[in-house]
Simulated assay, not measured.
Amino acid sequence: MKIATTVLETRNTVKNWRKEGYTVGLVPTMGFLHEGHASLIKKCREQNDKVVVSVFVNPTQFGPNEDLEAYPRDLEKDKALCESLGADLIFHPEPSEMYKNPKTYMNIEGLSDNLCGKSRPIHFKGVCTVVSKLFNIVSPDRAYFGQKDAQQLAIIKKMVQDMNFDVEVVGCPIVREEDGLAKSSRNTYLSDEERKAALCLSKSVKKGMEIIKEGISAKEVLDEMKKVINQEPLAKIDYVSMVDSLTMEDVETVDRDVLVAMAVYIGKTRLIDNFSFEVK
């Protein structure tokens, strides 16, 4: 497995693969890899001849008071996991390699106004910018993203469609701990007490999945889900919302395919979870 730190080295490696006729898959990550990332790498390995994993904590998607400096990093552990899963290349650039006095950014309208975009207004601009750069650097046939970041996945799919990127975006299911907590690099921030409290998210998701049905009002579902979270003293709701799966706009009734998503603070740590419901 190769480690590349520059755009040029990464591009040259992929060009050589292309000359051999290989297909290329990309798994964009911010590192501190866990089983959720592993599931993306495994799927990428199954579907492509060559696997590129980017490990880059992207500064442009963090707001001024967010956890850019504190975001967990462990490149040696990431290397070991990637190698064990058969990755061929890790692209691990410094911010200065990716951003050289930038004046151009990738923005998206509408889909980023709700859910996480409402409380993190610059976040998806940064996500779209770095993902578009990775697509241009790696030129993958396929790229793999987790469904835990459901709004991000919807936005990237729309960006690919709108900007005519020649890449297939593959969404992969949420990976959970045995007790239901969705895997996240930010779970390491939690104390033992907060870790137990964080289960209110997955319990709320389970409640929502139990009661949702075609024709039910969004309010009825969301109220029951919020009750579960509000029973936990350490939890503070950022949002619990039901939106159209494609437009990310709020819905009042389950009369189309919907995404039910939440962001909840457990202490100072902001965690997200979601589920989707398809109208038959």
Rank of each mutant, 00 (worst) to 15 (best):
E278Q: 07
A38T: 01
K19H: 05
Q47C: 03
Q147H: 07
L85Q: 09
E109N: 15
V251K: 11
M98E: 08
S119I: 14
T23Y: 01
D255F: 01
V167R: 00
I155D: 14
L246Q: 12
L246R: 14
I216G: 07
V240K: 15
E168G: 07
Y71T: 15
V251W: 08
V240W: 01
G36W: 10
G146S: 06
I137L: 08
K236V: 12
V254F: 04
K183E: 03
E9A: 13
L68H: 04
E224K: 15
P102S: 01
V264F: 03
D166K: 09
V14C: 03
N58I: 13
R270Y: 13
L271P: 00
G117C: 10
G31C: 12
L26I: 06
S112V: 14
V260S: 08
V170W: 00
E193W: 01
P28T: 09
N136L: 05
E46A: 12
G86N: 08
E214C: 12
K280N: 07
D88R: 09
M1S: 12
K203S: 00
A218V: 08
V205Q: 09
Y71L: 08
K100F: 14
V57A: 02
G267Q: 02
E9K: 11
F145K: 09
E83P: 02
L81H: 08
L190I: 04
I3E: 11
T247R: 06
M242W: 04
V127Y: 09
R186A: 11
F124P: 03
F62S: 01
G267T: 08
D244T: 08
E83M: 04
